[in-house]
């Protein structure tokens, strides 16, 4: 009996102590982490959307943690403890089969894009392997008063009727839009001091100020612009304007073009077509040189003949502010 007590009881006692030390106590202490500056609780609709996000296991493919690593910079600033004050259950995730969503509300604020993408991801990103969430939408003969139908591209739209979001889709969208990082003073220093940056290639992208590099321009365009304007530059009819043959893109005065990339646009009319969707600003996420690369790529692709710009031109428009 003594032996049994020693082995089973003793080891269990040791284990209980370790579980307390490594599980329970950190749990209790870190649960009291105060919210960071500007971090707010979710609204009821956003909370409902979060529950839908959880129920459908979105975080098995989408993380919500930006690491202090160079390769994570595209997703936002490094996550801080205060970001998670209202995040229960936690959704940090363990796999990134799809992109991180920590800051998706800022990175892709267009409701139109989000709806099309949820309805069928391949309608906007042909290579996507995300499931379709079309069951969160209804197909009706005519959209009810005050609801704009989702402009799903023809190849992906139902043969008859129009697609409108159900309450589920609206809640999910509200949650996705709530995923916005609050500015954190000193976030950049934190990432720099945390560890040596392992990716000189990615870091160097921001520094080259002279000369246009077509490969870099194309890569930046793919990463930041193609989900709406498409790799073909043709946009999606009725949803996202084309850049191919676009007047602002071919105009010798590039101010309007640069301004759009820096500060975003909303509710524009292009060639007589009104576009509802909102284009996000890139002033905070891309450097002048990167924006110049993107703009030059757009101005020299798909038959466009716009005059090239330099990082200096971008800096000049940036200096003028919105």
């Amino acid at each position: 009996m003594k032996k049994l007590l020693l082995i089973a009881g003793g080891s269990t006692l040791v284990y209980a102590g370790l579980a307390l030390l490594m599980g329970v106590l950190p749990g209790i202490m870190l649960s009291q982490t105060p919210p960071g500056p500007g971090v707010k609780p979710l609204t009821p609709l956003e909370a409902e959307g979060r529950a839908i996000y959880v129920a459908n296991g979105c975080s098995y493919c989408h993380t919500q943690q930006v690491r202090p690593l160079a390769q994570d910079k595209v997703f936002g600033r490094p996550s801080a403890p205060g970001d998670f004050a209202y995040q229960t259950p936690e959704l940090l995730g363990s796999e990134r089969t799809g992109p991180d969503l920590t800051n998706i509300g800022a990175r892709q604020p267009s409701a139109v894009w989000q709806y099309i993408h949820l309805y069928n991801p391949r309608a906007v990103v042909p290579e996507s392997i995300m499931p379709s969430f079309s069951w969160m939408f209804a197909v009706v003969a005519k959209a009810p008063e005050g609801v704009s139908p989702v402009p799903v591209p023809k190849a992906f739209a139902p043969a008859k009727g129009v697609v409108v979001p159900t309450h589920e889709a609206e809640a999910l969208l509200a949650y996705l839009m709530s995923l916005k990082q609050t500015p954190l003073p000193g976030a950049d220093q934190m990432s720099a001091s945390a560890l040596p940056q392992p990716a000189p290639a990615a870091a160097a992208a921001g520094t080259a100020a002279t000369g246009y590099d077509p490969a870099k321009g194309k890569a930046l365009f793919s990463a930041n612009c193609a989900v709406c304007h498409q790799e073909s530059g043709e946009g999606l009819p009725g949803a996202f304007p084309p850049l191919k043959g676009n007047k602002a893109v071919n105009d010798d005065d590039a101010t309007q073009h640069i301004h759009a990339v820096l500060h975003g646009v909303e509710g524009v009319v292009i060639d007589g077509v009104h576009y509802d969707s909102q284009m996000p600003p890139f002033a905070d996420t891309l450097s002048d040189a990167e924006i110049a690369d993107i703009i030059d790529y757009e101005r020299s692709s798909w038959g466009n003949h716009g005059k090239p710009v330099t990082a200096k031109d971008v800096a000049a428009v940036r200096a003028k502010g919105k």
């Binding site: 579980a19 749990g27 998670f84 004050a85």
Partner: peptide, 17 residues
């Protein structure tokens, strides 16, 4: 006792244990 970041700590503990 598990909220937000605290739950992350418990998840780490749980997942491997």
């Amino acid at each position: 006792y598990q909220y937000g970041l605290g739950q992350v700590a418990v998840s780490g503990y749980y997942m491997h244990n």
